[in-house]
């Protein structure tokens, strides 16, 4: 078997734990779209065209909450900003790929596949990175789309699915992602600010409160960083 094929297969194999781990979320996402009163094609289109789990979930709560388009786009952008760091991290390796593959490969750069790819680079070095990456990302992508379709289908078939409270899956996941970071003063202050502003600004139209709260939280974080830097400078002096 040529090296390229075995590398592609290794990519697929190494991604399986994450492919399996995200499957329930793909199903819940598909079901959630339908239960929010949106057409099932919407679920498939989001999974196939946007392919960004957390942004997909948020967009559903924004759209059904009557958010304006710019708010939806801006929220998506902000939530995905972390991918710029992944993009920068893999760039030294991907710059050896032909441009069409880079253009295509960038589309599939998710949290999960980035983590798998990073580990591969550290353990196996920079051989056959392109087939490995493609084996990993394409299998992950197809699985995500397939189970989204299953979820959308189920959503259409299960009576009263809208009352099951599936939207809780997203909230629980986000809460579980935030909580472990709340062990230092700065992230606690950021979360407390964002949470309070989000609470107070709930009544604003088009879900603008979300943007306002996020900005306030980041501003407090930046402010605290500045304070700490100044303190450090004074101590050193």
């Amino acid at each position: 078997m040529p090296d390229r094929f075995s590398a592609a297969f290794a990519g697929l194999r190494d991604t399986i734990p994450l492919t399996v781990g995200t499957t329930p979320f793909a199903v819940i996402f598909g079901t959630l779209v339908v239960s929010a009163g949106l057409p099932p094609e919407m679920a498939l289109a989001l999974s196939a065209i946007v392919f960004a789990g957390s942004a997909q979930f948020i967009s559903i709560s924004l759209i059904s909450g009557g958010a304006a388009l710019p708010v939806i786009w801006l929220t998506t952008f902000v939530i995905n900003l972390r991918h710029a760091l992944y993009s920068a991290t893999v760039q030294p390796v991907t710059k050896a790929w032909p441009l069409p593959w880079r253009v295509l490969g960038a589309f599939w750069l998710t949290d999960e596949c980035f983590a798998v790819f990073e580990r591969r680079l550290q353990t196996a070095g920079e051989r056959d990175t392109l087939p490995y990456y493609m084996g990993s990302t394409i299998s992950f992508y197809l699985n995500w789309i397939g189970w989204t379709a299953v979820g959308a289908y189920l959503g259409n078939r299960i009576p009263g699915v809208a009352t099951l409270g599936l939207d809780f899956a997203m909230i629980a996941t986000f809460a579980a992602m935030i909580a472990p970071q709340l062990k230092a003063i700065t992230p606690v202050a950021v979360a407390a600010t964002a949470g309070s502003v989000a609470w107070l600004a709930q009544g604003l139209p088009y879900k603008l409160g979300l943007m306002l709260a996020a900005l306030a939280g980041v501003a407090v974080g930046v402010g605290l960083d500045c304070c700490r830097r100044r303190l450090a400078v004074e101590e050193a002096a």
């Binding site: 809460a175 935030i178 979360a191 600010t193 709260a213 996020a214």
Partner: peptide
């Protein structure tokens, strides 16, 4: 500043 974005955005979504 980017480092603070995830906590701020996710909290702003979860709380309401």
């Amino acid at each position: 500043a980017l480092g603070h974005v995830p906590v701020a955005v996710l909290t702003a979504i979860v709380v309401p």
